[in-house]
Design a protein around this nucleic acid. Sequence first.
DNA 1: CCTTGTGAAGTGGTTCACAGCT
DNA 2: AGCTGTGAACCACTTCACAAGG
Lengths: 202, 202
Amino acid sequence: MPRLSLYLRCLEELAPGVERISSERLAELAGVTPAKLRKDLSYLGSYGVRGVGYHTEHLRYQIRRELGLTRDWPLVIVGMGNLGRALAHYGGFREQGFRVVGVFDDDLAKVGGRVEDLAVESLDGLEAAVRERGARIGVIATPPEAAQAVVEMLAASGVASILNFAPTVLRVPPSVYVRRVDFSSELQVLAYYLHRDTAPAG
Amino acid sequence: MPRLSLYLRCLEELAPGVERISSERLAELAGVTPAKLRKDLSYLGSYGVRGVGYHTEHLRYQIRRELGLTRDWPLVIVGMGNLGRALAHYGGFREQGFRVVGVFDDDLAKVGGRVEDLAVESLDGLEAAVRERGARIGVIATPPEAAQAVVEMLAASGVASILNFAPTVLRVPPSVYVRRVDFSSELQVLAYYLHRDTAPAG
DNA sequence: CCTTGTGAAGTGGTTCACAGCT
DNA sequence: AGCTGTGAACCACTTCACAAGG
């Protein structure tokens, strides 16, 4: 349920003193209806208190638990252009249990350079690194031409989930789950709503 | 309909010689069922040819038209860190009718520097620039702390759609439509499926 | 004969409204 | 009294299956 992740972010942005929150208020922050929020949360179990609301800290923990964020997820990032560096520098990952265990690029001029506390590695070492460091997630931040080859290396070395920022549609074996993040597509959706001036819900 | 944008990308990745394509084949490329694809396309009108398939060039044009990509969409990008630069350099926008008409940062050390063929401008000039250059789309690539203030400037100067890459939930007036692109959320969804090893559809 | 376009049936997700707890 | 949890009604989207048409 991808909305859980949104609720988690809203909870984390609450002022530190807030101990309880009602479905109505949290729903407003997240931009959903209270009923939807309560139904979503009810799948986690009955963690609300009737007449009172949800205990923020407890709820936060339960969502993290449901999303699988109570353990550590090693990941590799391939492609150290501006985007790859932005991702590698982004501290939000670490707090959520994502740990960057390798950054790779096929440009030998970049190999050996430092990004955060990691040295950029050549693609030759990608498969071995994924296996040795137990990465199950791969992030692709290469140009589109390079993405398919990288996916195949990642799949071969046992990566099960891929986050693809390259603007291309990847072919993968059924065992690998890919999520695309496509800037052009996002802009196209904005253009669509501007064009017809409607916008969904809200 | 956000899937149209996916179909468009698939059409554009076809080899240049391909003049016709069946719903079955295009659906396979896009990772959807043929029935769904046909239903989606039927909203555009009846542009397929029974017994033959869709004429790729014509279909491509019709989707672009529906998405509002046959005109030009000026946009501004705020925040010239790694992410902002990655976005500004990304050529895919231009081909789709998106035109970057200004790039901004509040760091005076960056102001005046060049990104592609634009000079980085100070935030002081943001509102005037949006108005003068007719930007209706704003892209936020700032750190989360700065994002809310930027949104307010954008909204005040008449931007109607915002693409938010900052990992925070923005408050906006109802006239402004925001899409969030949140790397952490995307990773959390991957973690969720890994954790429970299930994946949706396919 | 082949593939689209589309009503009809099916499925999943959302909203309503209120019973159940604190 | 107040707010959650949840069956029941509702709605939108998806799939099916076939008629229509090149």
